[in-house]
Simulated assay, not measured.
Amino acid sequence: MDKGKALIAKLKDVGREAGMLGLHGLVVVLSAGIAWSLPNIARQFLTFWSRVEHEQVLLLAMEVCVALCLIAVSSYLWQAFQDRRQAVMARGAGLISFFSSHNPVADRAIRRLKQEQSLGRTVLAIGVTGHGTVIDDKAEIHALLETCLEAKLILLNPFSEEAVRRAQSLSHLDVTPARLRDELVETISLIKRLRAAGKVIRLKLYSDRPHVRMIILGDYLWLQHYHTGLDVRWMPEYVFQHKVDHHGLYTLFYQYFTKRWENQDIPEYDFQTNELVYRTRNGSELRREPFGLDQAESHEERDLAAAEPYL
């Protein structure tokens, strides 16, 4: 498997070098062709000008065409200048990619970059239930949790009032508070299997309004925002990169995650006892509260049992 990947990478490098050589050769051929044809072009232009220099209508038409071309070129150069200014500002903020909507090509590029960054690193993520990023076979974090060194997840408490508001704000009829609880049950079940295999994964559950879905892997950060009434999967996705001078927004969002993780009002889920554990900043335990996930799991088991005759 590794040899095959190495061969593919080597072939890509050879193809890239061949493409650069071909481009350089094409530029040389075009330059030689233009230089060879310049005398002929000059003679043709002088002949054409001697014929039309006394044609007033044709001259006026040529002036209008030249003016339109100058307007188009100047507008293009001004727009290019503006785009370059915005690109410089975006790079200064650490923004390296922007995806207005997902497509198969962008999804593959995003998934490949995340897998490269997750190897031997710590995965930091904030979301709602984690179902769309963890459970699905094409999920963003599913493969990352298998290759990462450690994972810290902050998800929405499905029993909170904000979870009910979030479900009610969406136009999908199948998105209900019960659906959010079932999705969190599946996410926790997967995390338990990974923890049993030796992975270090911690989970905290917040109860306030969800604002962003964020994944931090090494020097890269993926960000989407939760909009009222809209599915986050169709929201724009921004990719930020860590800058050495700390001028980019990567540092801001990283600090946001750290503040959320260290918030004493956000309890940690105990996978052994199914309880929410509140801790102080130094890690000492303050109190425990039952989470009530067993009831949701029992509901899920009854639904599966009732559906078995129809499967």
Rank of each mutant, 00 (worst) to 15 (best):
T258E: 15
W78F: 07
W49Q: 11
W36N: 07
F240K: 02
M89E: 07
E237T: 12
I266S: 00
R179N: 11
I41S: 15
Y254C: 13
S118F: 08
V175N: 14
A125E: 03
L173E: 07
P309L: 14
E161L: 02
S189L: 10
A125G: 03
L230H: 11
L217G: 01
H172Y: 12
R85G: 04
Q264T: 15
G127E: 09
I266R: 00
E140Y: 07
K138Q: 07
R202L: 08
E63S: 13
A106N: 13
V134E: 06
K10P: 00
L113N: 12
G292T: 08
I216H: 08
A90Y: 06
A67Q: 11
E262T: 10
R195C: 03
M20T: 08
F81R: 08
A72G: 07
R108A: 07
L95N: 00
E268R: 10
A197Q: 06
V27F: 15
D13E: 08
L26D: 05
D137A: 13
L68I: 04
A163Y: 00
P158Q: 14
L68E: 08
A9D: 07
A106V: 03
N157Q: 01
S97P: 05
V239M: 14
H211D: 06
A67Y: 11
G19L: 11
H246W: 11
K243L: 10
V14E: 06
T228L: 15
V277Q: 00
D2C: 06
K259P: 03
E289H: 09
R209N: 10
Q86V: 09
D2N: 03
Y254N: 14
Y76P: 00
L156V: 01
P158R: 14
A109E: 13
V88K: 14
L156F: 05
H211M: 09
K192V: 01
T176L: 11
R213W: 08
D294H: 13
L230T: 03
A90S: 13
F291L: 09
S50W: 12
T147L: 05
R165I: 05
M214H: 02
E162R: 03
S37C: 04
L203R: 00
R43C: 04
S74G: 01
E116N: 10
A306C: 05
F98N: 02
H227G: 05
R111I: 04
